[in-house]
Amino acid sequence: MADITFVDVTLRDGNHTYRHQLTPQIISETARALDEAGVDIIEVGHGDGLGGSCVHVGRAPASDEALLRAATSSVKEARIAMLVVPGFGVFPDLEMAADVGVTVARVATHCTEADTTEQHIRKCRDLGLFTVGYLISVGMTSAEKLAEEAAKMESYGAQYVNLAESQGHLTPKEVAARVRAVRQAVAIPVGFHPHNNLGLAIGNILAAVDEGASYIDGSLKGFGGGAGNAQTEVAIAALKRAGHQVNADVFGIMDAAATFERLVSPHPMPIIDNNSLLMGYANVYGGYIHPITHAAEEYGCDPRELVLRLGERKVVAAQEDVVIEEAKRLAKHQQKSA
């Protein structure tokens, strides 16, 4: 049975759900609870990672440094990770992260653009960070193409490659095919990061682990973009039930989930609502759930039409401006035909 390294992303991906407003205090207390539960790696920061705080995606209430420091100063065993997307985060951000005690760097890009990560992967390795190549929206390309992109990241020095299925669009068979292809193409370990738009996050994790994935992402209460991530406490229990080795203990992680829920109360926990379901179905990036709902209300268009239109335009992560542009266009169109 597999030996799993669990990566909790509540305090980074969960920021999409919390409109990037997680405070140092929430981060500190949640990180402490995750650490006590035995989670191996805790990812922290703005939803779009280092340098992600911006008008375009959403401004954070504190600097990247304050967010990261809140986590690194609150844990004993767990490693703290940051995410960086080349084109967003720059080298001084990476240096700052290493300075405040972050030890894991996940260098992310859209699943077909691995060659934009070379500079940042090398830089993170130079800084002595455990460096991960992170491919976003893996349901937007084929297993073969993913294998090529993962191999590029390995050649730049990535120490494992993480496949993020950011839309919650893939079924277990499709996940298995992608993990298999990547495993055959690289010697480094493979990780998997699901979303739950079609209710398949936990099942997809089990399928990925059966194909050899050994790093698994989840978030407490499923707090993350779209219908949310795999629910960490459920994923840990399910992995153990399937006979896999996970460090975190079930009671501890349930406590962490309760702590987090209390800290962000009364914010609702993610559910698969109609818009999220449609995003999974139409393969639209999960981080857009709030921008879509918000823009549909503000400019007066049908959010479902907006989701489908974004799917047709094949938007990738970080195109929040297109959400607004399309909402305005649809609203105009709907007014005309009314």
């Binding site: 911006c54 859209h110 990738v316 970080a318």
Partner: peptide, 23 residues
């Protein structure tokens, strides 16, 4: 100032688009 660069692989290819926010 802050600059963000996004690469989109959609086919047919998208035209270069730029959004400017000025506070």
């Amino acid at each position: 100032g802050k600059a963000l660069v996004v690469i989109n692989p959609a086919d047919p290819p998208i035209k270069m688009r730029n959004t400017v926010y000025a506070v």
